[in-house]
Amino acid sequence: MTDTGQPVEILLAEDNPGDVKLTEKALERGNVINNLHVVNDGVEALAYLRQEGEYADRPRPDLMLLDLNMPRKSGTEVLEAIGDDEDLRRIPVVVLTSSEAEEDIVKSYDLHANAYLTKPVDFDGFLDIVSRIEEFWLSVVKMPPE
């Protein structure tokens, strides 16, 4: 929960249905009450963040989990747009992706990602990493006010 006693709002930008299910499962097992919102590509991610169209009534996320390899707009393009928008740049963004490429890591941090994690390929490893994200970002870190 947030300092106000409300569930933590998490935006997951992920186009792989299997990874969405694993993330949901890991967050359900966690200790932090949260609402997970899922978008399937970079265009939807930006519409959600900007509360446009069908996302006009959605809550502002307290944390975003972002895959880099998405259709329509990549995670890198989403990071660029977040960094260029004063209203969005305080939202913590954790890149959670399959890419281990050094250029993706460097570029993500250059675009002000708060963390970069490579998705484990095994079920238990994936659940563990999402649980650690939840524990650190939602229990330990002091989040910025909206």
Rank of each mutant, 00 (worst) to 15 (best):
E52R: 05
L111A: 00
L117P: 02
M64F: 12
P144G: 08
K119A: 09
D62M: 00
L36R: 07
V32E: 14
I33M: 05
F123M: 04
L36V: 00
W137H: 07
D67T: 06
E146L: 09
W137T: 03
E102P: 11
D67Y: 13
E100R: 08
E52Q: 06
P145I: 00
I129Q: 15
G75T: 01
E80T: 08
N34A: 10
S99W: 13
D110Y: 05
D128I: 03
V95P: 11
V140G: 05
G30R: 02
E86L: 12
R58Q: 02
L65F: 11
V32K: 09
N34V: 03
E100V: 15
V43Y: 05
P59K: 04
N16Y: 05
V130R: 02
E103D: 14
Q51D: 04
E54G: 14
P145T: 05
E146S: 12
Y55Q: 14
K107L: 15
P144F: 07
E100Q: 12
E146R: 13
I91C: 11
R29A: 12
L27H: 06
V38M: 03
P120R: 00
D15A: 15
V130M: 02
M143N: 13
S108E: 05
E14L: 00
Y116D: 02
D57K: 13
R29L: 12
L88A: 13
H37I: 00
V93Y: 07
A47Y: 06
L138P: 12
V106N: 07
H112R: 14
P92Q: 08
R89L: 15
I33S: 11
V94A: 02
I82P: 04
G42H: 01
G42K: 00
P145Q: 05
E102W: 11
I91N: 11
K21D: 13
N16M: 02
V106E: 09
T23M: 00
R90K: 15
E135Y: 15
V95F: 06
Y48E: 01
E80W: 10
S74E: 00
G75D: 04
N114E: 08
V95E: 11
N16R: 07
E28S: 08
K107D: 13
L12N: 08
M70Q: 01
Y116T: 07
G53H: 09
E24P: 04
A13Q: 04
D104W: 01
L111T: 00
S74H: 06
E100N: 13
E80L: 09
M143R: 14
Y109M: 10
T23Y: 03
E44W: 04
G53K: 01
V38C: 07
P59Q: 07
P17N: 15
L68Y: 03
V20W: 08
V121G: 15
D67L: 10
R90E: 10
D128G: 12
E100S: 14
I33A: 10
A56P: 02
E14H: 15
S74P: 14
N69C: 03
A113D: 09
R132N: 15
E52W: 02
L65Q: 10
L12M: 11
L63I: 01
